[in-house]
Write a protein that binds this DNA or RNA. Structure first.
Lengths: 194, 194, 194, 194
DNA sequence: CATGAATGAGTTTTCATTCAT
DNA sequence: AATGAATGAAAACTCATTCAT
């Protein structure tokens, strides 16, 4: 009688542990032993499931992005005006995103020297822009927004979002992401409203 | 008869070398020997001027920020409408900034775990926002911009700027900073114009 | 009703697997897992039959030598002149021996630091020399060979055999064992013929 | 005033240390720390001169072979009959060779899985055979040896030499290299004498 | 001031062996 | 008997830092 396959379970546990460790210490300072301890396993066990530290990092990236996508998709099926929905979308995205922002910045930094990481992130950004552009397009069709290039506005909103998170990460005392995003998006909507 | 002090000269050379090495390899991967070689010095000589790798990193941060400030100040004394000046300001800032963006991201990542770095960057951001707010204020006084909270707009512009650079860094093929910034700033100006 | 003992069968399978793995990878590089996979067993199962890697190596040694002995004995019961029989004997021995020569050299190397291995091999060499000496003795009795010290000639032939295999192992392109052995044995027989 | 370059000196010291350690423990069991201690250096210092353990091994191989060549060349300029010279040549070579025979066998074993090592050894063997063939040729010209293929005889002598060393290594109690070689070479000379 | 050889603590990774199931 | 996940003790290698010259 075969025992249930613990492989997936363990991998998830290790990834969760790695997520915490990487987020609080950074990729470089994080020791494989830290991850093992956090996952309540031995170092060897971690290596049983992931063949190197880089492997864990890549898996983390996949997970972070996949989770992000899930949040995104869910937020797209909301009701209300486009302005309201976008503000809610960006705000909630930011609230989720800020928790693992240190890790995100580790990934961005890594992306500059690792093509695989970079391409993964690029694909993610493209998805994200498309989702934003789609909402904008809806706004145009409903007459809430005047005829603008939805891709351009999507990029603007995306840059705003990323920038707001960055500023908040660097100076959380003086910069409130939610407030900043709300105000900024309103300014932009004033500029593109019919 | 005292010989001329070569100390400052050497320090500057080391910093310039470190800037290049850090920018292309990242803080962690960069070795003190790399910096020494780039500066055409011995490892020991580098340690004569800076007492640790961290010391060099902190000095680099000071330099990067100081240089950035200098560019900023210069751009503030331009002529033209506020919209024109701002676009020019952000565009040229971006052009300068993108060269050492990898290094900037190394610093941002570091900032999350190092209070000294973080505070330095926060001060810089404050300066930057003030400069932007000042221009906005001028625009309001000149009647180009309607009465808005200049700090809010400054934060929006700053977030936009940072976000645009980030997107460009991550996906330079598909995202053109200059174009993105121009279009975005125009949308915002449409939103805040009188 | 006792089930048939699969123990010996399994042990033989493991040894056969180990023989191949050790021969192609060497003792050090070979992992227990490699052996297990080759034997279509789990690592734990291998440890059920052999209590350590060294145990497997020692068993391999026994097997290699036993197999070699079997070949030897068989070849001694041939017909023809002593010269012919010897050439055939050495040639066929070489043909068998060269397949597992890498493994043999692993064992020789090991023998220098492991008394048990060394003694085993020494006993084998003694057997081998005795067999050769016996053939030489026959040659003397039959008048094919002049009165020589059969042990000395046996050692010479043995050295020649081992050396020829070694040279062939190191440079199979330029050195043909069979040819080398034939020519060498002929030279020696010219030297000891009546 | 530049200090004298200690680089060559250190490299030689490390190699000497490595030679001893490798010879007594074998490549695998030898730790870099063992070599460092033997050379009275730190591990880091060893890595300052050789960038990996394999590097040290390859350097050792070069040294062993170079030293061997030196012995060879020296022995070729001797006087006496070819038979006498050859016996002296092989005997003295064996006396030198037997000291580092364990190491030699490590190299032979390694050669089977490392092309670089293999090719190096092959070149060495070729040199060695050529030297032997040259002596044989002289013997033919001087009328001491009848017209034989000198390369074949050289290979025979070489195999004999290698085999005698091997047997001696495996069973030094019962096999005396010097005696074995003398007797064997005499048998062969009886076979090829005019 | 400057050199660059030397140090050694710290990290990733491997793998023989064990053991709960 | 058999499995294969888990352990943990090595071991190779790196590199910031020091220091004799």
């Amino acid at each position: 009688m075969p025992r249930p396959d613990v492989s997936d379970e363990r991998k998830r546990e290790i990834l969760k542990a790695a997520l915490n460790i990487f987020n609080s210490k950074g990729f470089t300072a994080a020791r494989m032993e830290d991850i093992a301890r956090e996952a309540k396993l031995s170092v060897g066990a971690v290596y049983w499931y992931y063949k190197s530290k880089d492997d864990v990092i890549l898996a983390i990236m996949d997970k972070v992005i996949a989770d992000d996508m899930a949040v995104m998709k869910q937020l797209l099926n909301e009701t209300g005006t486009v302005r309201q929905r976008l503000i809610k979308y960006l705000q909630e995205g930011a609230q989720e995103g800020i928790v693992y922002l240190p890790l995100t910045y580790e990934l961005y930094t890594l992306a500059q020297r690792n093509a695989k990481v970079r391409h993964h992130i690029q694909k993610h950004i493209a998805h994200y822009h498309d989702a934003l552009a789609e909402i904008i397009q809806q706004g145009i069709q409903r007459g809430e927004i005047r005829k603008v290039n939805s891709q351009v506005v999507a990029t603007t909103l995306s840059a705003l979002y990323e920038g707001a998170l960055e500023l908040a990460m660097l100076d959380s005392k003086n910069i409130d992401v939610t407030k900043t995003l709300t105000q900024s998006v309103n300014i932009i909507f004033d500029g593109i409203a019919t």
